[in-house]
Design a protein around this nucleic acid. Structure first.
Lengths: 232, 232
DNA sequence: CTCTGTGAAAACATTCACAGCG
DNA sequence: CGCTGTGAATGTTTTCACAGAG
């Protein structure tokens, strides 16, 4: 079921932080949490937390707070974390291999089931327990393994091409680590992470004396699309 | 010289994207660019681009556009990219080692000059050409090597402690890859990247049918600080 | 008395639209 | 013309502040 109503973009980012913190509190055996306590830990106001959570329904109990276990379940469902995500990594360089070995992905329900590399000499070698495959097998493996998300960990110049191949193969979303904007057709999800941009944001904070509460580091998608009536 | 005036947070993020794209165009030999062309490539309106750039002065030439070379120079200075950044990585696991070997950092002027790991058995081993050092040497090396930025690539539970050690040692900013919020005192820069949050944002886009133009993936800092007059 | 959910107000960010330069 | 820089208008997000539940 596609979107219900419109979620403020910044709120979407915070939902992940709520979930991360709530899961951690659940592990520690806490049963309930107030918007104030959650907000304090994450650097947000209590009102902000309540508004965000209220976007999806009424999860709280006046006077008592939110039941952590229930809230985690609800958030997981809302964020699509109740389904199984099957992921492939394209690019078996330093970053690609580090991601394949990043245990937290599996623990959180993102199963990396294939790694590809354009260099035929890499084919057959091991990366974090998976056999590296040649790009020629991408379409077949994505279909056979029912892969729905792709991670791009190749150098800048190959990235758009890889994205096109992933979309053609049938993935529904792409996490891009290459330092450029990736264009995908409507309906395909895209999130980008650029390490250099992240470090640069940090340098900016330091150089500028910025207090910056909540700077993001990198990302892109279907932009609101710079359409201008330039003509008339 | 600390901050001049206040920069819209989203604008700060875009500055990095401008710089990245402009540097790429400069390499390809282009000499000028219009706000419209730059905006189109990045998925922004021309007005947005002009507003952002105008925050720092008048760089454009009416009728002609912006001189790329000059603009790159100005942006680099604004973002603190004209100085030398000396960086250390704490944690020589998969992610830490991948970051040490990430050539783009060096090419962009972020010099990784030391790697540390809490596991004494790792000390002395090689990571991307650097000898891994024990944590006991952190304070001394940060001082001796005039390191001003630290990267945290350790598991969640050690991360805040590492951050405290880095700040005590004298770094001015921290890039955090551990999946938790890091608290630092006023005046210290902080940017966080959480791979799981990034993948989760992607899952959300896909599950929710979100068009999301420009979702960020993770970050935190001195939050506006949830202060409430709860008492009166 | 504590804590949620939520309209209404305030703050913030983006887009429009146009004067003016080259 | 084409393009910048910028006030004014619009749209979005956050904060306030309070009614009502437990």
């Amino acid at each position: 079921m596609p979107h219900r109503k419109s979620i403020p973009k910044p709120a979407a980012r915070r939902l992940s932080l709520y979930l991360r913190e709530l899961a951690s509190r659940l592990e520690q055996g806490e049963a309930t949490v107030s918007s104030k306590s959650l907000g304090r830990t994450l650097g947000l106001t209590d009102a902000q937390v309540r508004k965000d959570l209220a976007l999806f329904g009424q999860f709280g109990h006046p006077g008592r707070g939110y039941g952590i276990s229930d809230l985690v379940d609800s958030l997981r469902k809302i964020m699509g974390r109740d389904r199984d995500w099957r992921v492939c990594v394209v690019g078996a360089g330093n970053i690609g291999r580090a991601l394949v070995s990043y245990d937290r992905f599996r623990r959180e329900g993102f199963d990396i089931v294939a790694v590809f590399d354009a260099n035929p000499a890499m084919a057959g070698k091991d990366a974090g327990g998976l056999k590296i495959r040649p790009m020629t097998e991408l379409a077949k493996v994505v279909a056979d393994e029912r892969i729905n998300l792709g991670i791009i960990a190749v150098p800048r110049d190959g990235a758009q091409q890889v994205a096109d191949a992933l979309v053609a193969a049938g993935v529904h979303g792409i996490l891009n680590f290459a330092p450029r904007r990736i264009e995908v057709r409507e309906g395909i999800g895209i999130v980008s992470v650029d390490f250099t941009v992240a470090l640069e944001q940090l340098a900016f904070q330091v150089a500028f004396g910025h207090d910056g509460s909540d700077l993001g580091d990198a990302s892109a998608s279907h932009p609101p699309d710079a359409e201008a009536p330039t003509h008339g």
